[in-house]
Design a protein around this nucleic acid. Structure first.
Length: 492
RNA sequence: GGGGCCGUAGCUCAGGGGCAGAGCAGGGGCCUUUUAAGCCUCGUGUCGUGGGUUCAAAUCCCACCGGCCUCACCA
């Protein structure tokens, strides 16, 4: 008989004794934390506690145990002479992991531990599977990352002190983000996840099928084009905390579904958005970790405004010695990069080579720009939804925000010229025709909305998962997502 | 997708051609203030899966499944 069968048999034995191993309700009247905090005031009172059985120390005719609820753990003391032979014998039917309810009065043991002296106890829920084993200090141990991610409930049980604060921080981040944006007059909205066309980013989508309409729909890769339709509709400040889906590989900073906050502000440009973003992140940091100063992977950074501001060209020229504006075509740029020790990928165009130069100074723990920093003025051909910088033909009014080697978000002055936008989409269509299946689709309905008229608008999209990584010092995105996407588990 | 490392009991891990192991958890027994309780005692099992080599495979080889790291790609 394996352990699960032993536990099933104990549940049956309880039923045979007329005790439901899964009763519908509990008579708990105090939490563990309340009990410990008000220990002296509760002296002499009969109280009822409940929680999961995590230690059991039978000592003949008396038994010590610990139960744990969401607020803490407390010792209970059960004496045969006081609960009766029949009830005491029922202790044999208990296992670690079971939920118990215990009624009694408080006392302090010889060794000074605050303890419930039990007069009666009962089962609240029988656990059929064992908890992860206890290790040093009597705490549970569970290290296997595969089990931790597939069965997060075990991870939370075994590694509560390390894990729970991360997800509490994530909740605080979302709350603080809403507080700040709401206080600035932004309206939170929800736009379609199922979209007839996908847009707003360059990525491959997940495709699904609507049976009644007999048509394919896409899970959104970004909410951008819908949010800008709302700007057209007169909602001048709008945001969405959007779950996005991208059908790409996953690694320490990418999960196929992830959360992005996008916000748009009419009559603002990308420089206004920089000020908004640095204030937003500083507010979130203060609300979440109590300070704008944080440590990420051993590096201390300060999110307090103002953040650094560098053009992409300046930043790259300063840190790599390559001034890409001096090299107007792919070949000369590639040659300049080789001269500085880079190995430019021969398959990449000029824009993507510039992207590689950017990554070399931004990414990773050795990044030269740890700071929070805005890099701005991006190559236009990488930014089909961004307005061109006045007086230039190849530069977009766009910035990206970085901190500690993480890309936090992306913003531009939104392109609101419908004729220009159509031309950009058509250029993307040509890239699609050449086989780039991530190039953006032509969205006629969106063009029509722009033709109705969109005021000058600045917009930002920032990853919530990466922000959580930054504020909780986690280097893997799977540690800030409760149930990260995993490969299917096969039984063979 | 490429490369490297890994997969042994519920958990944490040893063992790396010759009987399947330890600690904790679990079963049986003793113990009325213990606390990682203690003492005695018993068994943990598709050694990821499937092939192959061998007298003999957890161990060596191949494929597959899953994980971790890394590179590429993407955000």
């Amino acid at each position: 008989m394996d352990e699960r069968e032993e536990r099933l048999a104990k549940a049956e034995a309880l039923r045979a004794a007329g005790i439901d191993p899964y009763p519908a309700r509990s008579a708990r009247d105090h939490t563990v934390a309340e009990t410990l905090a008000q220990f002296d005031a509760l002296a002499g009172q009969t109280i009822t506690l409940a929680g999961r059985l995590i230690f059991l120390r039978p000592m003949g005719k008396a038994t010590f145990a610990h139960i744990e609820d969401g607020s803490g753990r407390i010792q209970i003391y059960i004496k045969r002479d006081e609960v009766g032979d029949e009830a005491y014998a029922r202790l044999k039917l208990l296992d670690l992991g079971d939920f118990l309810e215990a009624t009694g009065t408080l006392f302090t043991t010889r060794t000074g531990e605050k303890t419930l002296h039990v007069s009666s106890f009962t089962m609240l829920a029988k656990a059929l599977r064992p908890l992860p084993a206890k290790g040093a200090g009597g705490d549970f141990k569970l290290f296997d990352p595969e089990v931790r991610h597939r069965k997060r409930y075990l991870d939370l049980l075994a590694n509560r002190d390390e894990r729970l604060p991360v997800f509490v921080a994530r909740a605080k981040i979302l709350t603080a983000m809403r507080e700040f944006l709401n206080s600035q007059g932004f309206l939170e909205v929800e736009t379609p996840v199922l979209q007839p066309l996908y847009g707003g980013a360059t990525a491959r989508p997940f495709i699904t099928h609507h049976n009644a309409l007999d048509r394919d729909l896409y899970l959104r890769i970004a909410p951008e084009l819908y949010l800008k339709r709302l700007i057209v509709g007169g909602i001048e400040r709008v945001y969405e905390i959007a779950r996005n889906f991208r059908n790409e590989g996953f690694d320490h900073s990418h999960n196929p579904e992830f959360t992005m906050m996008e916000c748009y502000q009419a009559y603002a440009d990308f420089e206004d958005i920089m000020r908004l973003v640095e204030e937003l992140y500083a507010y979130i940091a203060r609300q979440t970790i109590g300070s704008t100063v944080l440590t990420f992977q051993g590096r201390q950074i300060d999110l307090a405004p103002p953040w650094g501001r560098l053009t992409l060209r300046e930043a790259i020229a300063e840190h790599t010695g390559v001034d890409y504006e001096q090299y107007p075509d792919r070949e000369t740029l590639a040659a300049a990069m080789e001269a500085k020790g880079f190995q430019p990928d021969p398959r990449l165009g000029r824009g993507r080579l510039i992207d590689d130069l950017k990554d070399s100074i931004i990414k990773g723990p050795q990044s030269k720009l740890a700071g929070p920093v805005f890099l701005y003025d991006y190559p236009r051909d990488l930014s089909p939804l961004a307005k061109a910088k006045p007086g230039t033909s190849d530069t977009a009014e766009r910035f990206q925000a970085f901190a500690a080697g993480l890309e936090l978000g992306n913003a531009f002055s939104e392109l609101n010229d419908p004729v220009e936008q159509r031309a950009r989409f058509e250029d993307q269509a040509r890239q699609r025709a050449r086989g780039d299946d991530e190039a953006q689709q032509l969205d006629e309905d969106y063009i029509e909305a722009l033709e109705v008229g969109m005021p000058p608008t600045g917009g930002y999209g920032g990853g919530v998962d990466r922000l959580t990584m930054l504020l909780t010092d986690q280097e893997n995105v799977r540690e800030v997502i409760l149930f990260p996407t995993m490969r299917e588990q096969r039984d063979d």
